[in-house]
Amino acid sequence: MLHRLYSPERWTFNGTDVSALQRQHAGLKRLQQQNYIVQNNSVEFGSNPLSGFRGLVSSSFHVVGAEGFVPSEAAMEQCSSWTSGCMTAEMETVKLKEINLALTPERDNSNKRKAEIAADERCIEKRSKGEVGMEYSEVKAKCSSTEISANTSSKENSKVSEVEKSKYIHVRPPRGQATGSHSLAERARREKINRKMKCLQELVPGCSKVTGKAGMLDEIINYVQCLQRQVEFLSMTLAALNPSQEFNVANFPAKEFPAYITKFPAAAKLPALANRACLPFFPTQPGATNCMPDVALHSPQASIERNSTYSVSTSQQTLNSSGISQLGPLSSWSLDSQGLYDEYNTGFQ
């Protein structure tokens, strides 16, 4: 047992405190996790009281005979043989810990180092496999040269390799790893952008034919500009329409308006027809519109508009059918003021 504890120190004690830490770490872990090893070790250790105790426990279920050898803690635990066996194992580990404490002067820093080693292990996982494999084989060769016992050699190997790797990463600048993570992040970002671009491609009409991100972005920019200008233009048109609109809006409450909008073609036919029917009388009927009681407020401005855009009103028949979108704001104004009266008439007749 002591020989095994000493053995790692013998071959790795070349000035680095990592070897001492490694030996202690490996020993503690192994002993705490695997009790049966400790029990086997106790047989090898030559401590006859403990081996006799084991024999007693296994043969006669009572632990009476064990009390002579085991201290008082185990005496209190007389419920079963298994728990007492565990207790002996724990005691054994405590002993070994004391030995470790005596042997390692750097034990105070062990916790800190453990954390460092864990961090280094995490870093190492990201590195390329070839280097690690090479390192690992090297460490294996080293371990085989030393006298490590057979049942713990694999565990020792892994521990040693990790320590060696941590040493390795201290020596080498982590250049490759940095670029690796950067390139990974860059790739993820590019994929994200591609997904978003695809999403946008579906939204923007005519964008699916364009290849390349630059062309697509051009299309998107154009489309957004176009939509913003459309909103501008439509609000301008609404502004031009507005003086005549309040009757309509007052007639149609806002809640019912979407219904009107959805069946717009059917709803719009009647006023349009009435509009066209009234059109020939329009230039000769300023008095007729003036005599309407509710439109008195609007009549002066309407007459002004008629004077200013009289030439437009002659071609109103064609414009009326072609729709508002081809008209300037002023012509639509006059058109609408006339259309409003007609609509007003048809609404109340």
């Binding site: 999403c199 489309y223 459309q230 909103v231 909008i261 717009f264």
Partner: peptide
């Protein structure tokens, strides 16, 4: 993408309002 969708909706609604009022 979200803005484009909203703008398209806005344009659609406003055009319908304009069409409705202009007839």
């Amino acid at each position: 993408a979200h803005y484009v969708m909203c703008l398209a909706t806005q344009v659609q609604v406003m055009r319908k309002i304009v069409d409705f009022y202009s007839t």
